[in-house]
Each structure stands twice: as structure tokens, then as C-alpha cells.
Design a protein around this nucleic acid. Structure first.
Length: 294
DNA sequence: ACTAGCCCCTGGGAGC
DNA sequence: TGCTCCCAGGGGCTAG
């Protein structure tokens, strides 16, 4: 699912390919995706003719800064991902830069923007959880949801001291804290598992039980794993794809996520899966030992 | 102010 | 083969 590395990959691609373009039209077969404004016709009216001036990312949110002080926000949630290309009428398929997509994928395209040069931007989303919002720039930046987002984990100013500060003011299990968008913005289930495996820390371990040394390890490994994943253009174990339709390359670096029953690449122990705060957590019981304080 | 739990969705896999 | 049931999961929301 799209977490920081996948969203970053998408944003980098779009910045190269649609920056400076103008929205010409928009189509949907699932208008519930559009949350602001709720009425699709109004959304259509408001976005048509707006020029894309800047494309960036905040946590897992994609932001298109548009002319007239508007911002188009897209959160891809679980299975959403943006595809760049063109709908061709002749064979009724989506023509991505890498070639046509399968009919199956075509049926997942629920929102399609047409740009002024005829190119299109589609939101593919099997489970229909993604959200799209059109904001007044100032209102978005002043909104609680936006203000509350934690620091960017790969940000230059996000030092270990800052990391320790934001983490240790929270209580609870390390995995849940890493995934809390108000603590750090951009980490989800896959990368929290991958980070904790590499840091050799059990997902259930309480933040208060982490030593300075362990905290430092989590910080360093977090920066490393996320940077590597950006470099590899994210993961595609689920539905995520680069806007060209290509799969991300992080799969070869994935050590524990959805590897239940397989052997740990470090020690050969069978990878286990447990529930942490209602979410699946994958880990190596030997590398990531934990004896809860009773 | 907190948090646990439900809800939104659909495809895929397990079990029968 | 074909049916039913369960699971995956980010985050918004509500009930306690």
C-alpha cells in the first residue's frame, strides 16, 4: 500500500510529467471518492481550467498546488494509486507509457482527469478507500488534519534528538507509535515492520522500554529503509504501481512483511505474524526478542 | 483528553 | 466446482 516511498515515487514522476499542465476535464464512476466538495459536478466545475503549479508530498498525502490558490489533495489509502497515460477508445483500455493495462485493472479506474494536452491521470483503486479533496490553500494549511501531521522522517531537520523527542512523549507500543501520523508522517504497516526487523526490536515493545541505543538504531534504520525504498520506487506486493504501470522494486529488500512461515534471512528462524493494535505485524522471534515486564 | 472498536470496500484464499 | 466466510488495511468517526 502507498506509504512514504510509494507516494514520493508518484510525486517525483508527476512533477516531471504533468507540472505546468491544466485540468481540462474529469470523469468518475465512484463520486464518493471526492470528499471536498461533496458534489461531483461542483468539483468538476472548480477544477476545470486550473493549472498545476507545484506537486509535492506531505506524509502520505499528494498535493497539487493549483492556480487560484487551490490545492488538490489525494490520499491513496490502501489500494489507490495514480496512473499516467491515456484512455484509448478503440480498444477501451488504459494506455500507460509501458503499454496497455489489463481489462481487470481498467475496471479499477474510478477517477480520470484529462489534461490540456490530452494526457490523462487516473486513480486506480480496487477497494475505493482513497480520498480526493479540493481545498483553498490557506484553509488546508490551517486545518487540524494538516497541522497535526508529524515531521517528515527523511527531512534534513529531523535529527535523532528530534526523533527521540517526538517518540518518547508518546506512550505505547513502538510499532503503533511509528505508524502514528501525528508522531511521524508517512510510515505505515509495511515499513514499520521492515524498520523494526532491521533494528532488531519486537513490535510489541513499549517505547518506554527502549534504550538510547535502541532508539538510535530505530532512527538510523528508519532513514535507511525509507531512502532505499524511495530509490527502489516503492513496493508492489499489493496494488501500488509507479504511474507508468511499472512495479516498484522494494520487494527484493522486503525481509518480513507478509513473509509469515518463511525463514528469517538473518538467522533462519520462521517469521511470525501477530496482531498489534488490530494490525498484522511480521517479525523474527529470534532477532526481535522481547520479554515483557510483568 | 484519551482509546478501543467499528466502518468504509473488494479480491483472494481457506474451508467445506 | 461453487458457495460462504474471513482477512487485508489508513484513517475518520463514535461510544465509553
Amino acid at each position: 500500500m502507498p506509504e512514504l516511498p510509494e507516494v514520493e515515487t508518484t510525486v517525483r514522476y508527476l512533477a516531471k510529467n504533468v507540472l505546468g499542465r491544466t485540468f481540462f476535464d474529469v470523469w468518475t464512476d465512484w463520486s464518493k471518492t471526492i470528499k471536498i466538495p461533496k458534489n461531483f459536478q461542483q468539483f468538476k466545475k472548480e477544477i476545470k481550467g486550473r493549472k498545476i503549479k507545484k506537486i509535492w508530498r506531505r506524509g502520505k498525502n499528494i498535493l497539487f498546488e493549483l492556480s487560484g490558490e487551490k490545492i488538490l489533495l489525494i490520499h491513496q489509502k490502501l489500494t489507490g494509486h495514480l496512473l499516467f497515460g491515456k484512455w484509448t477508445r478503440e480498444n477501451n483500455t488504459w494506455q500507460a507509457p509501458l503499454g496497455p493495462l489489463s481489462e481487470r485493472i481498467n475496471s479499477y479506474l474510478h477517477l480520470i482527469f484529462t489534461l490540456d494536452n490530452g494526457q490523462m491521470l487516473a486513480l486506480s483503486d480496487v477497494r475505493k478507500f482513497a480520498k480526493v479533496e479540493l481545498w483553498d490553500s490557506k484553509k488546508l494549511f490551517d486545518s487540524q488534519g494538516f497541522i497535526k501531521l508529524g515531521p517528515e522522517p527523511l527531512g534534513k531537520s529531523f535529527t535523532f534528538e528530534k526523533f527521540r523527542e517526538v517518540l518518547t512523549e508518546k506512550k505505547g507500543k513502538i510499532k503503533q507509535i511509528l505508524m502514528n501520523q501525528e508522531v511521524i508522517a508517512g510510515i505505515g504497516n509495511i515499513y514499520s515492520d521492515e524498520i523494526l526487523f532491521r533494528a532488531k526490536i519486537h513490535p510489541l515493545k513499549n517505547i518506554s522500554e527502549l534504550s538510547e541505543k535502541e532508539l538510535k538504531r530505530v532512527y538510523q534504520v528508519m532513514r535507511k529503509v525509507l531512502s532505499l525504498a524511495v530509490h527502489l520506487q516503492g513496493e508492489s506486493i499489493s496494488d501500488y504501481r509507479v504511474p507508468t504501470g511499472k512495479e516498484g522494486g522494494f520487494d527484493k529488500a522486503r525481509k518480513v512483511y507478509r513473509r509469515t512461515g518463511e525463514r528469517c534471512s538473518r538467522c533462519g528462524t520462521i517469521i511470525k505474524k501477530i496482531k498489534v493494535g488490530g494490525r498484522a505485524a511480521h517479525f523474527c522471534p529470534r532477532c526481535q526478542k522481547y520479554k515483557p515486564i510483568s
